[in-house]
Nucleic acid binder design. Structure first.
Lengths: 197, 197
DNA sequence: CCTGAAACGCCTCCGTT
DNA sequence: AACGGAGGCGTTTCAGG
């Protein structure tokens, strides 16, 4: 495993601006060959930094109900509530704060928020609901000067430049060291063997 | 001007999933030819619905400070404050509610939020600041069954399926009817003539 | 507004350094 | 890791309905 270098960051920045830009153009810009860019983009996808290529839409042009901000205070069951709501259509963002508030950005009929919530979450776990109309929202896709910081799948530590990787059933896992990797893989294989019995 | 039809929505949905998907693949899926898909995508870009092609990144893998939610209550000067903050690096989202609260999702050092704000907004206009750590955030790019709803550049009404379009200095404007269009264009040309004098 | 053919350009696989 | 060439697609332009 390698960290992000300046070339990776340049490639990301260029793709952030236009994800359909030809790799050969990017190659010129970062002084590399097109195959090299292709390889790097693939690697950035494999490690999970690039989750995909998508569109930046002007959602204000789509009238799918009123944009609202829903703020929920839940009993300490936040994760499940947040996940359930994220499944719903018309939901664009779900933010979960450290102290247990869930913020939802969605397009719904404001008078039906309660109904909407009832369909996707257990109302009993929700202590407080606050709904506000959104006047405006901006999204700024950009890249800081950040370093790459995946977590070790075994011990949770930050994986540095010299970590290990394993692919199990198509999923990629990162490890801070060889021992964490073998420990994890052994346990995984034991589990897989158990299923077959 | 045409509204969105089902084919447009299918194309958008496919591109949201993978913006680098070949137009020929999309063409197969929606039963059209590749050039027709290309034309439609271009049109969706021209009317401003597609703002661009971009990446979906796992920002938790980039350590650029701590993800925080900043909530601001401002004197009724919300727009300027929101715009100023959106300029800042490390800011991902700015939401503005109807009643004047600004919500900012950013990666900053939590102890320096005040400093951070001072650099990008006039502190005198901010009455209240609330900062919360973010534990988790989900983004689900999706499309409702929404119709296309641009506004008439002249009167502000919603432009229906039979509106007009004009291109002035490379920018595309939409109008609900011919009279709005000619009114706008005349005024524009008068203005342009004034500048030359 | 669409199709179909054809020209052009882009991506990726491979052998090599 | 990256380059360069070659093959195979993908995109776009153009003529025609």
């Amino acid at each position: 495993m390698r960290g992000l270098d300046d070339t990776d960051r340049d490639i990301l920045r260029l793709l952030l601006e236009d994800a359909r830009r030809p790799y050969s153009d990017i190659a010129d810009a970062v002084d590399l060959s097109a195959p090299a860019v292709s390889d790097r983009v693939e690697r950035l996808g494999e490690i999970g930094l690039i989750e995909g290529f998508t569109l930046d839409l002007d959602r204000s042009m789509l009238r799918e109900g009123v944009p609202v901000l829903i703020e929920l205070r839940t009993r300490p069951d936040t994760g499940a509530v947040a996940d359930g709501i994220d499944e719903a259509e018309a939901v664009e963002h779900v933010f979960r704060t450290a102290e247990g508030t869930v913020l939802v950005i969605a397009h719904v009929d404001q008078r039906n928020v309660r109904e909407f919530l009832a369909e996707h979450a257990d109302l009993a776990t929700i202590e407080e609901i606050d709904v506000r109309l959104l006047a405006d929202s901006e999204w700024t896709p950009q890249l800081g000067t950040g370093e790459l910081a995946p977590e070790c799948a075994e011990c949770g530590n930050t994986v540095t430049t010299e970590g290990e990787t394993a692919t199990l059933d198509g999923d990629v896992y990162h490890f801070c060291c060889q021992s964490c990797q073998s420990k994890f893989v052994d346990r995984y294989e034991e589990l897989a063997a158990g299923v077959e019995d």
